[in-house]
Amino acid sequence: MSTSLPERVSPAWIARKSQAGGGMTLTQRVYQTIHDEIVSGALGPGERLVRRTLSKRLGVSPAPITETLLRLESEGLVEFAALHGSRVRPLQIQDVKNDQMLREAIECQAARLCAEFATGEDLAKLLVDAKPLDRIIARGDRRSQVGLQAHLEFHVHLAQYGGYAGLADELERVWFRQVMRLNWLGETWHRDVPEDWHQQLVKVLMSRDPDKAEAKMRDHVRFAKDTEREQFHAFLRGS
């Protein structure tokens, strides 16, 4: 099955949390701008991030630029390379594998906690969210802007309902790195997913059995993992 990204994922939803929180400081605005440009693919893999150039373009002093680049480096979106300075982290297959493993660890623990501690109301909301998400996937829009947003929000909410915000925050960071890479591909393909994929997951969470919840989530995040890696191998071969 082949689908294309009709547009890069928009910073309009990438920045939703900061915008919803009201006014931002200068450093926060600089961070959000550069973060969005990287995740949306506007700044490509390995592209240099020159402090002086960024300062001039954004109309700010070097201080918030430096702080932003350090933060983005800690989030895995930027790296510092000798003789090159800061640059967008280039595509490396080992990074893809690491994030796949990290996502699996986070999501499986989140599923256990959600099955144990989420309220009935939380699980009911999750089931409501799962239905339109499964319809989006059934239409082949999984990698569209709407599909990516719905998918992220479903999994972040699941992690939040377990009662540990740190898991949800780390999951978002992993997700943004993945979205960045998908935007570099421009076009992607994947295996057809099972019908009612996310609704099935929620129903297992509703059983309140942490072991079953973990096993179901592990199957969920491992689905088409090898296919995803091959996409990036093909991208590197063609670059």
Rank of each mutant, 00 (worst) to 15 (best):
E7V: 13
A12V: 07
A12L: 07
R16F: 15
S18N: 10
G22R: 00
L26G: 10
T27H: 02
Q32C: 01
I34D: 10
G44I: 02
G46W: 01
R57L: 12
G59C: 10
G59R: 04
S61E: 03
P62S: 00
L70M: 06
L70A: 08
L72M: 04
S74E: 12
S74K: 13
E75C: 03
E75V: 01
V78Y: 00
A81L: 09
G85Q: 07
S86C: 12
R87N: 05
R89Q: 11
I93R: 11
I93L: 14
D95L: 15
Q100Y: 03
I106A: 04
E107P: 00
T119G: 09
D122Y: 04
D122V: 13
A124G: 04
L127H: 09
L127I: 10
A130N: 11
A130S: 15
K131H: 08
P132L: 14
D134V: 04
D134L: 02
R135A: 14
A150N: 07
V156G: 02
L158M: 13
Q160P: 10
Q160S: 10
G162I: 06
Y164S: 09
A165L: 10
D169N: 11
R173K: 02
R181K: 03
N183G: 03
L185S: 03
R191A: 15
D192Y: 06
V204Y: 04
P210L: 01
A213N: 01
A215M: 06
F232V: 00
A234G: 05
F235K: 13
